[in-house]
Design a protein around this nucleic acid. Structure first.
Lengths: 221, 221
DNA sequence: GCACTTTACTGACATCATGTCAATCATTCA
DNA sequence: TGAATGATTGACATGATGTCAGTAAAGTGC
């Protein structure tokens, strides 16, 4: 028996959504400036020109805000990876492009990458259906789908070995790449100390990590 | 002008060290139970049967306690990797063993692995010489040395391709393995959902990640 | 336009963890 | 024994979190 929502109802929902986004904007700025741990809800509120209490109306707590940032991060990431893959013809090249695009993403949006790192490192006790944590996970799957598509394309055109469980490979690649970027990013100063540049490190990581995808010599496409 | 320390002075230094270790023990227990974020200094103090104020005498803050746990973790890890490498003759097999040992370590000491994950994800603004954060970094280098030794052994016996920058490769392998374990560990429930077991995932990650080390066919040892 | 309802928003509060310090307790040493 | 040194703590100030009752504002029906 649901009635058609009134015009003003729709408009207000819209404004609510806008405010929500504005709060995430503010949170991103504060997180970027002070880091997640040190970031205070008060700062987020001030930056959004709103009382602290209102932030709690939109987000149950700081963790929920972080999840919201993660979802944004994964949305942007998916676009980038997708565009990168579309720019290449052969499956193998798509995968290389995806790896590079992830690295570019990390250096273009360090905050987003840091948010994802936190999410990866965080061990949840339970993930309820419908929770925002679950939503982040699902956004993650959407990203993996891009990789999976490239892998199957590669299997078809013969540039990548046949794979029975593409999700397994996609996750492996994701873990590898994420791990490598994380070192390059958080330990950049240390890398310098031992005479390595972060770029050099990442370039090597890409070259090195993709060997496993090569099809056996003489395998038919 | 330093005089020989008195007998009682030495004994008391010893007791101080013991207490310090006891505090780290307590911290480990609390961290394992409640996670790093939720862990309270009060809990650590209570578990060590000590006032909260005393904890602050030994550790400037919670972060310092975490660094202490990281150092322990890296000490244990180094032993494990070292033992694993020593159990194999050929360089390549040493590397495989090291990878497996890291995985075994992560499943045997989930708290230690989580601590290292946090450390990897954490972006420091400055690392002062002599700081405990620096000490963790150095303990990390000690771990990488094990890998580097295995790599050079492999280059010598011909089971691994020649490498001009072993630290580069060691760090790449570290990043890969860590990234993969992290997914297997924190996202185990999710892996199940998509029909993968954590063990299967890790086994694949090892096989997949080491392709880059193979020497070119017909390369001389 | 006016009453009335629903929704957005906030100030003030209770709670709780952190980090500090002066004061106390225990021990070594002369 | 009594001074001195070091270990330990209770009590405090500070600051962040999350909640809630209450106010302001916008929407609705007349």
């Amino acid at each position: 028996m649901s009635r058609k929502p009134s015009r003003s109802r729709l408009r207000r929902d819209d404004e609510k959504e806008r405010r929500r986004e504005a709060l995430i904007d503010a949170a991103e700025a504060v997180f970027a400036r002070h880091g997640f741990e040190a970031a205070k809800m008060e700062d987020v509120a001030r930056r959004a020109r709103v009382s602290r209490a209102l932030v709690y109306v939109y987000f149950k707590n700081k963790a929920e805000l972080q999840f919201a940032v993660c979802r944004r991060a994964l949305r942007v990431l998916r676009e980038r990876l997708s565009a990168a893959a579309d720019g290449e013809k052969r499956g193998y090249d798509k995968i290389v492009a995806i790896g590079r695009a992830y690295m570019a993403f990390a250096s273009e949006f360090p905050l987003y990458f840091a948010a994802l790192s936190r999410f990866e490192a965080h061990q949840p006790d339970r993930i309820d259906a419908g929770s925002s944590e679950r939503a982040v996970l699902e956004a993650g799957v959407a990203v993996h789908e891009v990789t999976i598509a490239a892998l199957t394309a590669g299997a078809r055109d013969g540039t990548i070995a046949r794979i029975d469980k593409p999700m397994l490979v996609a996750l492996t690649l994701w873990g590898y790449t994420h791990g490598a970027i994380q070192i390059a990013q958080t330990k950049a100063a240390f890398l310098e100390e031992v005479g390595l540049s972060a770029d050099e490190f990442l370039a090597h990581a890409i070259r090195f990590g993709l060997q496993g995808l090569r099809p056996a010599k003489g395998a038919k496409p």
